[in-house]
């Protein structure tokens, strides 16, 4: 183990993110040269004719939004209870369950969605087909729930105990102590958890791909969550194999990847801005 080896591995890992960015930019140049902003705001995607990314951007955003709508209240509520209400043994159990469940592969959620949840959604809302934005969002919500919960819990739990004691000594009740003395200090960590959960939901491919319906169109009306749609990741997952690394189709997929990369990096940057330096799952 000599320093030169350390230096090389260091160079590899610190440059990888940059290399991927360069790859994405250079790969998507042809599409932006040909279509410009049309690519981002175009609503049509027909291989060999025209490429527009808006439906996929829309799908990714909506699906992520639904997922957060589920994972945030449940995850943060559970984190508060785990850190502040239950005893030490129960906390250990809940934490372990969440940490283990955070690793359940996306494909498992995809399968559950494909074979069960789509049917439930279809029957529950009387739809023709259960493959829709709502189903994908629900699955993603459950999928990122453990991540959001366990990272938020970390942030809440590290708030030093003397703040709680001080607040209690002033006569505050448990819920007031949590809301006014504990949570304000845990906010950077909780935001970090939210951002990390969001990036995971955005980038998830298979769990979405199997249940979103894979229709490259913005639903009509646009707030119709029961309509089939398409997300960036699922679009790439569906078509990457066909495009075999050359031609405008490939460039369009790489450009989609660049957009996704931009969305995710913005969030990562925001997470760092709020002072989050947590561990990874």
């Amino acid at each position: 183990m000599t320093p030169w080896f350390l230096g090389i591995s260091f160079l590899i890992s610190s440059s990888l993110a940059g290399i991927i960015l360069v790859f994405l930019i250079s790969g998507s140049l042809p599409i932006f040269e040909k279509y410009g902003w049309e690519f981002i705001f175009g609503e049509e995607w027909y291989v060999g004719e025209t490429y527009g990314a808006l439906p996929m951007i829309y799908g990714t955003t909506v699906v992520t939004g639904i997922a957060l709508g589920i994972a945030l209240p449940l995850g943060i509520g559970t984190a508060v209870v785990t850190s502040e209400v239950v005893g030490r043994r129960m906390r250990y159990i809940l934490k372990s369950v969440m940490e283990i469940m955070a690793g359940v592969p996306g494909i498992v959620y995809g399968l559950l969605g494909m074979l069960l949840v789509t049917t439930w959604i279809r029957d529950l809302f009387g739809l023709v087909d259960g493959n829709c934005l709502l189903t994908a969002g629900l699955l993603l919500g459950v999928m990122i729930l453990p991540t959001v919960m366990t990272l938020s819990e970390d942030a809440i739990h590290v708030v030093p105990n003397f703040y709680r004691e001080q607040a209690y000594a002033l006569g505050l009740q448990t819920h007031e102590v949590i809301i006014y003395a504990v949570l304000p200090q845990a906010i950077p960590g909780i935001l970090g958890a939210i951002f990390l959960g969001t990036t995971r939901a955005m980038g998830e491919t298979v769990a979405v791909m199997l249940v979103i319906g894979s229709l490259d169109r913005i639903p009509d009306p646009f707030y119709n969550l029961f309509a089939p749609a398409q997300s960036i990741a699922s679009k790439i997952g569906r078509e990457a194999a066909e495009s075999i690394g050359v031609g405008l189709h490939w460039n369009a997929l790489v450009a989609l990847g660049l957009i996704l990369f931009g969305m995710v990096m913005t969030l990562t940057w925001l997470a760092e801005r709020v002072g989050w330096t947590g561990r990874l799952q």
Partner: peptide, 11 residues
């Protein structure tokens, strides 16, 4: 490193 961690797996 965190940036690399954020890269969606499909990319």
């Amino acid at each position: 490193i965190y940036a690399l961690n954020g890269v969606p797996t499909i990319l």
